[in-house]
Every structure is written in structure tokens, then in C-alpha cells.
């Protein structure tokens, strides 16, 4: 009698352990070796006009703004076939920066001279943002997000005053300067090294 009641339970336990083993294989076996998990920001959200349409800016307007604040500004490099650049909603930009930090932790990459330096931090973020904008169906434009070189004379965002690369973006709050290594944001007018911006890249 005792044996009869134990059998269904034993069979359940064996089945359960079998399922558990099968579930564990992709996580610890071959699949984990060949692939990895990467965090990504959610769907791109543009800054909107009052009528609900996305806001855009031209490269000339961005160049003019940079020239206005920086006497030493030389050039904005941009793709002349792109007439308008879509503005990012501020909230999405902040999420992008937070997820970028998680993503770099996921892939365990750290600052290293030349091979992974401030230019890489900046240009990689710039390219990732563009891909996320495509994912939302904006193929005939590009984000008003780029990167720039600054011959910094003052410390900002915990980084020393040296030749440095940073990200810039235009949101509903205007042109912002971003330190991609720690996600700090400041409006261009309040950026302590604004007059030392040398060149910017919008492609």
C-alpha cells in the first residue's frame, strides 16, 4: 500500500528534475558560450511640437549655436544629404545614458588609452542612438546627437582639463553637453569649457 502511494510522487520528482536539467542547459552550456545578453534602451521618443509632430533642427542651426558659444570652434562635420535632424525627448536621452552605462557593464569594457578612450565612449553612444532611431521607423533623418572634441581647460563631470571628446544632443531643452562616461548633462550655455569646443561630428 505504501509503495503504491509513493510511485506517483517519485515519477513526478524524476520528471521535474528532468525538466529542470533541460531548462538549465541553455543557461550554462553551449548557448551561454556562444551568445551574450545586452541591455538596450527602449523605443526612441522624439521631442514634439505643440501639434504633436516631431521637432527637427538643421546642421547649420547646430553649427551656428556652437560658433556662438565657442570662439575657437573650427568645423561641424556632417552628411550634407541629411537636411533635418530629429530632436530627442529629454526623458529618452536620460534613459539612453542610463542604459548605455548598464550596457558597458554588460560587456565589461573599461577605459584604456586609444583602444577604448573618450572618443570611443562618445562615438559608440552616438551610433547606438542612431540605430535606436531607425528602430522607431525614422529612416529619412538622423538624431540631433553627435560628438565633439574639446580642448578642456576646466574640470567638469569629474574629468580633468585635457583634450577630451564628449557627446552633444539637442532636446526640447536646447543643445546639451553630455559626458558619456558617467551620464552627466549640462546645457551648452552652462558648460564650463564651452569656449574651447574645437570641432563637432554629426554623422
Amino acid at each position: 500500500m505504501k509503495k503504491l502511494t509513493q510511485r506517483p510522487f517519485m515519477s513526478f520528482l524524476i520528471n521535474f528534475l528532468l525538466i529542470l536539467a533541460l531548462l538549465a542547459i541553455p543557461a550554462s552550456g553551449v548557448a551561454k558560450e556562444a551568445s551574450f545578453k545586452l541591455s538596450m534602451p527602449t523605443e526612441f521618443i522624439p521631442a514634439m511640437d505643440k501639434d504633436g509632430s516631431p521637432q527637427y533642427i538643421t546642421a547649420e542651426q547646430i553649427e551656428k549655436t556652437l560658433q556662438h558659444h565657442s570662439k575657437g570652434f573650427k568645423k561641424l562635420y556632417w552628411n550634407k544629404t541629411i537636411k533635418h535632424f530629429i530632436l530627442t525627448r529629454h526623458g529618452w536621452l536620460k534613459e539612453l545614458l542610463a542604459v548605455y552605462n548598464i550596457m558597458l557593464n554588460d560587456i565589461n569594457v573599461h577605459a584604456k588609452a586609444d583602444v577604448w578612450d573618450c572618443e570611443n565612449f562618445s562615438s559608440f553612444l552616438n551610433a547606438l542612438a542612431t540605430v535606436r532611431i531607425w528602430k522607431s521607423g525614422y529612416y529619412d533623418t538622423r538624431g540631433a546627437i553627435g560628438w565633439m572634441r574639446v580642448d578642456a581647460k576646466k574640470e567638469w563631470a569629474g574629468l580633468p582639463p585635457v583634450m577630451h571628446a564628449l557627446v552633444f544632443a539637442v532636446t526640447e531643452y536646447g543643445l546639451l553637453v553630455i559626458e558619456p562616461q558617467n551620464g552627466q548633462i549640462v546645457e551648452l550655455k552652462d558648460y564650463p569649457n564651452k569656449e574651447f569646443i574645437q570641432e563637432a561630428f554629426l554623422f
Binding site: A34, S35, F36, K37, L38, S39, T42, E43, V99
Partner: peptide, 9 residues
């Protein structure tokens, strides 16, 4: 999860 991708190395 909408924010996660699994990629081949």
C-alpha cells in the same frame, strides 16, 4: 524584456 537583446559573440 523589451530592453534586452541576446547576441552571438
Amino acid at each position: 524584456a523589451a530592453d534586452t537583446m541576446f547576441l552571438q559573440k
